[in-house]
Amino acid sequence: MYDFLKSLDRRWIFLLMLLAVAIPILGGWRFPERPSPLVETVFDTIEDLPAGSRVWMAYDYDPASQGELHPMGMAFARHCALKRHKMYFMTLWPQGTVMVQSCLDMLKTEFPDLVYGEDYVNLGFRPGSEGPIKIIVTDLRKSVSSDINGVSLDEIPMTRDLKNVQGVDLIINVSSGTPGTKEWVLYASTPFHITTVAGCTGVQTPYLYPYVPDQLLGMLGAIKGGAEYEFLLLDAYPQLRDNPDAKEALRRMGPQLFGHLLLIALIVMGNVIYFMQRQRGEV
C-alpha cells in the first residue's frame, strides 16, 4: 500500500476528482447556506434601493470564469429586475459581451414585461482597460455614444438623461481580473463616492478585502458567495423557488464540498507518506 501511494499515478487522482465533482452534480445534491455579513450587505444594498434606481452593471469577466462568476452575475440581474431597477450593462472585457448577452436573454425570458431601453440597456464592450472608466465617470458620451446595436444614447429613454456614471445609484461589478473591481473602486467609486458592490473569483477575493467596507460596500467571493446570495434571493422572493436557473450557484456547492474534502484528504495522505519517507530515511 505504502509503495502504491508513494508512486501514485496522477490519473488515479484525476479519476477521484472526476467522481467527487460528477456524483453530486448527477445526484442534484444541494445544501443550505448561511450568508456571511459581506454577502448580506450586498443583498441589502440592492434590496434597500428604491424601485427604479439606476444600477450600473459592470460585467468584467469571460467564459473562462463563467463557472465561478456567471451564477452571481445572473443573480444580480434577477434581483435588480425583481426590484425594477434600471440596469446599464457594460463590459471592459472583449469576451464579456457574451456573458452580458446571456444575462439579457435571461431577462427577456424570465421578465418579459421589462422593456429594452426603458428597463435595461446593453452598452457593450469598451477597449482600453481602465481608460473608459476614467472617462465615463465624468462624461459618458465621450466613450459611449450608442448601445451595442448602434442606437444613439439620446434615443434610448433610460440613457437620454444620464450624463455620467456619477448619475447612477449603485455600481455592481462582477470581475475575474484586470480591469475589474479594483479599477472601478480606484477610478469611479472612491473619487466620486459612488456606492459599489462586487462579485469576484476566489483568487481575487483576498486582494479586495482592504477596500471593504469604505470603498467597496460588500463583496461576493467565488461560487460560495454566489450561493449565499442565491439563498438570500430565494428567501426574499419565493416565486424564484420553482426556477432551477435561480439555484445554479447552490447546485455547484455540492461538487465544491466534495472537491474540497478530496483535496484535504489528498494533502493529509501526501503528508503521511512524506513523514513515513522521512522516518525511513528516504527523503
Binding site: 487522482i13 476528482m17 465533482v21 467564459p63 494533502i267 503528508n271 512524506y274
Partner: peptide, 21 residues
Amino acid sequence: ASTMFALLAFYIASAAFRAFR
C-alpha cells in the same frame, strides 16, 4: 474556455498531493 478553467481542479488536486508538505 470553461474546460481549460475546469482542468485546474485536476491539476491542483495532483499538485496538492505531491507538493503541499
